[in-house]
Design a protein around this nucleic acid. Structure first.
Length: 325
RNA sequence: GCCUCGGUAGCUCAGCUGGUAGAGCAAGGGACUGAAAAUCCCUGUGUCGGUGGUUCAAGUCCACUCUGAGGCA
């Protein structure tokens, strides 16, 4: 047990809200530590969602290999965290076999946890049963919630009766396996992971809230200048499918409403800004509770980044050395 | 200069005939195990423009005053 823990692959993991200089930091670190980047971003995994997901351009990547970017077609209907996790784990193994430093960087908290905790994804999703339970919920939410209470009281107790998504998933697990979701490991550290998680050096970037929001607003304007509208239009025209996970992401979702004629372009852009700000707030909530993270303030980035990058490069090298033998 | 209508939460406004204030939006906080840029939950003390007065009690009535919009000269 102890032995297995010590064999867990060390990685560096950069987290934080969107528009917080994570990308720049990760590339600079990679340059100094023979790093390769593994994106933990639920939108950058798709092809074509380039501008809106703030994917680093080839130029910005400066030759640093990036993984988990451009992996899935937009019309992929069944994506899942565990799928992300196994692909990302493969990428990490590849990096290690090349003798390089894996740098995980991303703002999708669940994806980060899927890599850095041994989450037990024991029961695969089952679209058929999920659809059935969802219909059951729509018909009588409270009754469905009561049913969950009866077969999985632990999960039910943690969920609000309105939390359809999670209630449905919990019942889906129960209906598929006959075992309550909570029995598969209710807490991070004791759940039975499918494979050993990595051992991360957790680095968090944060920023004064007002400044963060200003940066977000500016970045959305810049995305529009860079052609987000055309990018979204091309995707809109390419298919009539409107319920794909990829298209629920910020930027596309709002511009699609504009294409549908539901709102003006101006309103759509404002909505993108607001939804991004709220997203950043949720990301902060998510990462704030993670006590493994050491936080660094990126508010005065231009004047402090050089020192920060050098310092974190040293820490990265030291951290990675710790597992060398 | 005169008349009218306003000035209440970050914004837009409610507040009947006096009993120290409440909605929407914005915002903040939290949750999160196979859709997660998703989904869900919780949160409203604010010099009621200012000063003085009437009253047991004033956002509410009176006087003066500051300020915004419109109208008339």
């Amino acid at each position: 047990m102890k032995d297995e823990h010590s064999r867990r692959q060390r990685v560096v993991c950069i987290v934080g809200p969107t528009a917080c200089h994570k990308t720049e930091l990760s590339i600079e670190l990679a340059k100094r530590t023979r790093g390769e980047i593994v994106s933990a971003d639920s939108v950058q995994v798709y092809f074509h969602l380039d501008i809106g997901s703030a994917k680093p351009t080839m130029e910005e990547r400066q030759g640093i290999p990036h993984h988990m970017i451009d992996c899935l077609p937009i019309d992929t209907a069944d994506v899942s965290v565990s799928m992300f996790r196994s692909m990302a784990m493969d990428a990490i193994e590849g990096i290690v076999s090349r003798g390089n430093t894996p740098i995980v960087v991303g703002g999708s908290g669940l994806y980060v946890n899927a890599l850095t905790y041994p989450l037990g994804f024991a029961v695969p999703k089952n679209d058929e049963i999920r659809a059935r339970v969802a219909a059951e919920y729509d018909q009588d939410p409270l009754k469905t919630y009561e049913r969950l209470k009866a077969c999985d009281p632990v999960s039910a107790q943690k969920l609000h009766p309105n939390d359809k998504k999670r209630i449905v998933r919990a019942l889906e697990v129960y209906d598929c396996s006959g075992q309550p979701l909570s029995s598969y490991g209710a807490d991070f550290l004791n759940s039975a992971g499918e494979s050993p998680a990595v051992d991360p050096l957790m680095i968090g970037l944060t920023m004064d809230r007002e400044q963060l929001y200003q940066r977000i607003n500016l970045r959305v304007d810049r995305m529009m200048e860079q052609g987000l509208l055309a990018e979204a239009r091309a995707i809109y025209n390419a298919s009539n499918e409107r319920n794909l996970p990829a298209l629920r992401s910020i930027g596309y979702q709002q511009l699609f409403a504009y294409f549908d004629g539901t709102c003006s372009l101006e309103d759509a852009v404002e909505k993108i800004k607001q939804d991004t700000r709220r997203f950043a707030k949720r990301q902060l909530t998510w990462f704030r509770r993670d006590e493994r993270i050491t936080w660094y303030d990126a508010t005065d980035w231009d004047n402090t980044k050089d020192i920060l990058i050098e310092r974190l490069a040293l820490e990265t090298l030291a951290w990675m050395k710790g597992t060398e033998l």
